[in-house]
Structure formats: C-alpha cells, structure tokens
C-alpha cells in the first residue's frame, strides 16, 4: 500500500493530538479527512510531510519510511493554511523554486491557472489576501504533479466561484493523471462529491475509515410525528435526532425495516452523517 500510517501518536505537552492512529492510504483515490476542530487532521498531515515528528509510530510511503527521507517526502505535497514561504518571496519566485525542487513541476500550467484565477505573479506571497494566498498554494499543489497531494482546508477564504473552479480543476487534474489526494475540510457538503473514501477522526482517534458510499448507504434519516418515530427507532442504532414541535427527525445507522405509514424516509448525505456521528460521540 502506498502510505502506511502505523500506530502514530503525537503529544504536545499534556495534550494528545493523535492517539495510536493506524491508517492506510491507497493508490489513486480521493480521501476526505473529516473531523471537528482540534481532531488532529492538521497534525496528521504535518507528520505525513515531515513538518512535525510523531511521538511514537512509523509512516512509510511506497514502502520507505518518511523520516529524513527525501525520496519519500518528495513524493508528497501539502497545501496547508500556513505560509511556509520567505517574507520577501513573490509568486513568480515561488514557482521558480518549485521547479528547482520538483523536476515534474508544470510551470506553464501554473502560469495558466494563475491567469485563470487572476493571481498576480509579481506580488509578494505575504501581501496576498487570505483568498489569494489559498489560490497560490492550490496552484502550486495542482502543478507539482506529485503522486500524493494533501489539502488542508484548501478553500479557506475563497469565494463561491473560485471554490467551484478549484473543485472542477482538481477533478480534471485527477482524471488526467490520477494520484492519491487527501482533502481535509470542514466544508463537507461541497467536497462530498469529490470524496471516494472518508476518514473521520475525532480527538486524535480514527472513528471511521471506509468508502464514502458505504458510510452513507448504511444510514438513513426518518422523520414524522415524535411518537411514531420513537416507536420505529426503538432498539435501533440512532446516531442523532432533533425535535421541532411535534415532529421528530432521527438519523439511524443500519438496515431499514418496512416503514410504518406516517413516517418519511430519506437518504443522508456525508455532511449529515458526519454531524450525526459527532452528536452521537458527544453524547457518549
């Protein structure tokens, strides 16, 4: 398997950000790394790219350990919220430097995307607005052509049009040259159509790790009069529920029985499933 994460733990003083995380990221798939704030998503991606060192555990990329290994680290690119570029560096120089480090960097494509997004390449990276700083990093990520591409909150500060453009370009790029993509985002509804495999992380532990369809196919939402809903969900695995007036809506995991009259059944999407799962965990 391309990326094997074995028993990774990361402590920051008394806080345990990752707790014995074991995960495998397969070839040429789009992964959604989902979790609440502070779940450990950014820490995991930082460890995967050598920015942080795990307290415990090992990571291998194509069979090679990543620690101080340029052959492995050079196969991955992280598009993160943080600006890792020097203060005086402009976009053009960052592209030039990218070509130095990644021989497969497509400069022409990067320039084309910069034009498409309206990114001024002569501007200093530090002086870019939040949205354009995100666009700059997205363009780099889309142009480096590495087999592993990680996005941490990729659309931070982007307007709806640019977000849509990014999702479409990412899909085009993925169709052209498939690679392993990991998207960590809070905008689950927007990215849901891209995600093939979902990894849900909470308090540094992996809660779910399975194909997206498998997650949502196994759950459904039932709504109707509270009494009827309560009777129907009795004994079932209820992820979450909410009551509005006399009406109750419940998210249930597991097979669906024949629905009694008066109740309405609907499929749930990835975001609803995520919220329901988090609510269930909150109650524990």
């Amino acid at each position: 398997m391309p990326i094997e994460i074995k028993n990774i733990t990361k402590d920051f003083g008394d806080t345990r950000a990752l707790d014995h995380v074991t995960l495998t990221l397969g070839d040429n798939q789009i992964y959604g790394l989902l979790g609440n704030n502070g779940a450990g998503k950014t820490t995991l991606l930082s460890i995967l790219t050598g920015r942080q060192c795990p307290t415990e555990g090992t990571i291998t990329m194509d069979g090679e350990p990543i620690e101080n290994n340029d052959a492995a680290l050079g196969k991955a690119f992280l598009v993160a919220e943080q600006n890792m570029f020097p203060d005086d560096m402009n976009v053009k120089r960052a592209f030039k430097a990218a070509a130095l480090f990644y021989p497969q960097f497509d400069r022409e494509y990067a320039d084309k995307l910069a034009e498409k997004f309206g990114l001024k390449t002569k501007k200093k990276i530090k002086s870019l607005s939040t949205g354009y700083a995100s666009i700059f990093r997205l363009i780099l990520g889309l142009s480096v052509n590495t087999p592993y591409l990680f996005f941490d909150e990729p659309v931070l500060g982007l307007d709806a049009q640019h977000r849509d453009m990014f999702y479409r370009i990412l899909l085009e790029k993925y169709a052209e040259c498939p690679c392993t993509v990991v998207i960590s985002t809070h905008l689950i509804a927007e990215a849901a159509n891209l995600i093939e495999h979902a990894v849900i992380i909470r308090n540094g532990k992996i809660l779910k790790d399975c194909p997206r369809e498998e997650l949502t196919a196994d759950a459904y939402s039932v709504s109707g009069p509270a009494g009827l809903v309560d009777k129907f969900i009795a004994g079932k695995h209820v992820l979450s529920f909410n009551i509005l007036g006399g009406l109750k809506t419940a998210c249930v995991q597991g097979p669906c029985d024949t629905l009694p009259e008066g109740l309405e059944l609907s499929a749930i999407n990835l975001q609803d499933y995520f919220i329901s799962l988090m609510e269930e965990e909150d109650r524990k």
């Binding site: 101080n68 340029d70 196969k75 991955a76 480090f101």
Partner: peptide, 14 residues
C-alpha cells in the same frame, strides 16, 4: 525560512 521552504518542497529537515 530556508527550513520552512525545504519542508514545503519535499526536502527533509536533515
């Protein structure tokens, strides 16, 4: 700043 850039561009800290 050199270390940050190197890590961004897939080069280890060592």
């Amino acid at each position: 700043s050199d270390l940050r850039l190197c890590l961004q561009y897939g080069v280890s800290r060592r």
